[in-house]
Design a protein around this nucleic acid. Structure first.
Lengths: 214, 214
DNA sequence: GAACCCATCGTTGTATACAATGGACACACC
DNA sequence: GGTGTGTCCATTGTATACAACGATGGGTTC
């Protein structure tokens, strides 16, 4: 019950920069000199440096030593690579979810799925993405595998970056959202293999059961 | 052909601290005050901070904000979690390896496997671990999936920490090393499913084909 | 006119100084 | 005696100052 209002400046800058990158306000390739950021945020270069370095660990920023830092870009190939790993991790989560983990997170899952639908209804795309992201994070957390959770959180930034770049149309998006509910049903019924296949479809937006067992 | 001798102090400190942690010189739970490290390395606190923060991103150091940083410990449960994720990632790599990736890395793989055996022969345990690690990294790299590679490198630090803590006996260790060659044969023959099963056995040191298809 | 070299400037990398918070100890109070 | 509280100190968080390297642009030479 501590007052966590006093986050460090470094944290605040990190959060805001991340938002700016993921919202597209800071576009891929843009240089981000420490001094100008410091001016913009009204702090010294020290917390800026820490934030930028943390972002580089998450792959959102590329640092060229002794030269400059810039917002990372994603190539087509990288996007595919990320999706492939993402599917694998989420499938591992599904495999790992047991009764207790399911019960502990089912409320969260359904809430995020619902909020997602709601945001879709009012046309709030940013919120859709946010809730969608939370849904998948909750799925991972239900695995209760700390290493899995921590690794997925690493990928998460790039996944979000991708989600934006993908720019799905209304139809595709609503199809995706419907799959959230389907996933939960399959989970509830213990139909893990079908759930894993659905996740593949969910991420790749096409119905291939690559990776599913025969 | 650039002179990369001039690594930043922050990098040097990072490397040395990582070594000290992974060699067990810095034991889990030990506090690592910035100032004493700065004194020890003969640099200011700035590069120390950057190094420690980077280590915390890799899970080797735990930072308690505004209080202190300490070397992370691994619980039994975490060890299992890490192993589970590790197996999944390496299996994904095997699935992803194509002809070109195999050819590009087969030389590396056999070299590391051989160096591993050699180090085992002369009883150089540290070197065995190092080469073993390089072997598995090469396996991952053969997938040519950048996201997979980057994620695995994140886990790698913890995997190395585990390898030390595990403290396998001579018999178990030499059994493991023999499996490297076996893996390469299976890869060469394109027997991916058997290779994936072997990887599970390799990591968990017991012959269970959990995760293998039926 | 093009290529190379050199100097300057801007930016990053590091050191140091200062501010602010958390922890430990001692003391008082219950 | 145990618990709560207040002060002090050690350590972190941030700002600023300085050093060192890389990039850019102009001048010289072929």
């Amino acid at each position: 019950m501590k007052k966590c209002i006093h986050n460090s400046l470094s944290d605040q800058v990190y959060t805001m920069l991340k938002e700016q990158i993921l919202s597209g306000q800071l576009k891929g390739g843009m240089k981000i000199p420490e001094e100008s950021l410091a001016e913009q945020f009204g702090v010294s270069r020290t917390p800026i440096r820490e934030a930028v370095r943390r972002l580089s660990e998450y792959g959102l920023v590329t640092i060229k030593p002794r030269s400059y830092a810039s917002v990372s870009t994603i190539t087509e190939k990288e996007a595919e690579d990320i999706a492939r790993v993402r599917v694998t991790l989420e499938q591992l989560a599904v495999d790992s979810i047991d009764e207790a983990g399911y019960l502990a997170h089912v409320k969260e899952l359904s809430r995020f799925a619902a909020d997602c639908q709601y945001a879709m209804g009012i046309g709030d795309r940013a919120s859709v993405f946010e809730q969608d992201n939370l849904f998948h994070l909750a799925l991972i957390k239900a695995s209760r595998n700390s290493a899995l959770i921590s690794l997925y959180e690493r990928l998460d930034a790039k996944i979000q970056q991708l989600r934006i770049a993908q720019n799905l149309n209304e139809h595709e998006l609503s199809l995706c959202l419907a799959q959230h509910g389907e996933m939960m049903n399959l989970l509830k019924g213990g139909e893990k293999e079908r759930c894993k296949a659905l996740i593949h479809e969910h991420v790749f937006h096409r119905s291939i059961d690559l990776g599913a067992p025969r």
